[in-house]
Nucleic acid binder design. Structure first.
Lengths: 190, 190
DNA sequence: AACGTAGTACTACATTTGGAGTGGTGTCAA
DNA sequence: TTGACACCACTCCAAATGTAGTACTACGTT
């Protein structure tokens, strides 16, 4: 088992792209090698088996989807009212949609996790933490709404992103925009 | 190309199970043969190629997820108020969750459709029709809320089902129940 | 009632594909 | 000089495809 951490990370990031492009079943050592532009056989040296590869990707993917420090800091600026909330949610949807392959890869992982208990455990942990962090962050921010608002928004926006990424012709850009606004407005109404 | 319609349907239904169990990449002629308990090579005779198989499954899956006539008729009975609406949404979530493999298969198809234009066209058409039908049905029912309510509910409940099917430990049964109630209540608040 | 035919089911096989894993060699740096 | 890693090549294995050939069944014809 090789230990070079940069190379390992590069392989995992390549695996994310492969997942998005080829699907879970297409995530093979050889495909990762090709995507990362390293010689065939390399991924074999870095991951014990496919299960291991999936689990490591599951551990990493979430880091890449979350906003960075600067973005989080920026989100705390300005008046924290409903309009601001909507603005933040638009940014969120755009940011996630922009890292297209990351989100698709996460969906692939979710489906794959129905067959891989270890992966499921990793994802469950990460996602629970994320939801809790969102609720906590919201509570501390002074933004309107309660914890149920946060979760309802989480639900609606997630599917909106799925819809946009998998079947982009269902909703127009305009409709997506209006739906984000409506989701914010109505979620906040306790 | 064989024509026996019952056999074809049995193969497609088997394909749905395979999709849910093995994922999109695992949907092979041989796997369908095995799942349908027919001799190997049979599926080859019924579908021109994998693309054809995907497309035909995409055409059928939605029929199996939609409520039957009796259920629709029943949904129109009684007072059509917010409480009733919530009741119907609980039934919806339970019904879809119960046909577990169907919903997972649809998710697999969505992801696969990013790679198969023909499949994407079929799914887009079906899902547009479904959303429009829901909006129309809602308008005629006398239930409270506007068309945006219907779509927001569609978004939130879809992801709630995804969450429940792929990572069942994220929300408890109790939380799922409360989220459905909250989603109905808040979506209706224009 | 016997026959012929068409469509389908079943079986077997030849071929292709692609991936896993490993061992050997080269290279670089401590 | 030694150890860790990159690179490359080769073998083995598993699985799927598509089709050719045979058997069965139902139905229409005479």
């Amino acid at each position: 088992m090789r230990r070079n951490p940069e190379r390992r990370q590069a392989l995992i990031d390549a695996a994310i792209e492969v997942l998005a492009k080829e699907g879970a079943r297409g995530l093979t050592f050889r495909a990762v090698d090709a995507e990362a532009a390293v010689p065939p056989g390399t991924a074999s040296n870095y991951f014990a088996n496919r299960d291991d590869l999936f689990t490591q990707v599951g551990g990493r993917i979430y880091e890449r989807l979350l906003p960075d420090e600067a973005t989080i800091a920026r989100s705390r600026e300005g008046v924290q009212d409903e309009t601001r909330y909507a603005e933040l949610m638009h940014e969120l949807v755009d940011r996630v949609s922009a890292f297209n392959s990351g989100y698709l890869a996460l969906l692939e992982l979710r489906l794959e996790s129905t067959r891989r208990p270890e992966l499921r455990a990793v994802l469950t942990k990460r996602i629970r933490e994320d939801i809790d962090a969102n609720v906590g962050h919201h509570a501390a921010s002074g933004l309107p709404g309660d914890s149920t608002s946060v979760v309802l928004l989480y639900l609606a926006l997630n599917w909106l992103i799925v819809e946009r990424l998998t079947l982009p012709d269902i909703f127009t850009e305009q409709e997506v925009h209006e739906l984000v606004d409506a989701a914010v407005r109505r979620s906040l109404n306790a």
